[in-house]
Amino acid sequence: MARLNADNERIAHEIIGRYPRKKSALIPLLHLAQEQDGWVTDEAMSHIADLVEVTPAEVLGTCSFYEMFKRHPVGDYHVNICHGIACHLLGADELIHHAEETLGVKGGGTTDDGRFTVEGVECIAACTEAPCLQVNYRFANKVTTQDFDALIADIRSGARSDIPPHGTLAKTRQSIPEERAAGPALVEDAQEPAWLSRNGSDQ
């Protein structure tokens, strides 16, 4: 647990290769680090700094701006309960209160067994399904307190294997076959694209 492992370092290089400037890969690589360890370690940030050729301070500057990156260990299941306006109107505060009571933690806290972290979060774009929540960024809609208890019970019993560990976002990655890649559009010495110059345009 620390630097990106060999597999992830290979993925990191593949991601970096898609961008005209290496630093653009910073956020995807921080996700990769979080997927590996469940949170973003200082060692991972230093490693990423090397990979994208910036200072660790710059990596931390970016990392600390974004809510999803946790710079300390969190629960296996990060429960984000939406308290955006639509959910607020339909009982989000009560749901958060219930979650904190039943799990015995306060906002952002982690249960003693390390399984759950609960946090009230801003709008997660499921407003018509209020009140809603995400567990490791997987949705549960129109959640009652009973639904919440059932969800926690299901997770505890291992019935929700569809929810990946914290840090894993998309289970499907983009993969650009080498022979199909157009390649990054480099900033320096770029030319007008061939199809434009031949076909003409109003540009």
């Binding site: 898609r18 961008y19 653009s24 956020i27 995807p28 921080l30 996700h31 701006f65 974004y66 809510e67 999803m68 990156f69 801003e122 709008c123 976002l169 998309a170 983009q174 650009i176 890649a181 157009a182 390649g183 990054p184 559009a185 694209p193 061939a194 199809w195 031949r198």
Partner: peptide
């Protein structure tokens, strides 16, 4: 001769 990559990029939580 049209060649364009579409790269999927993720955010990380910032409105």
């Amino acid at each position: 001769e049209v060649s364009v990559d579409v790269v999927l990029h993720w955010g990380a939580g910032a409105y």
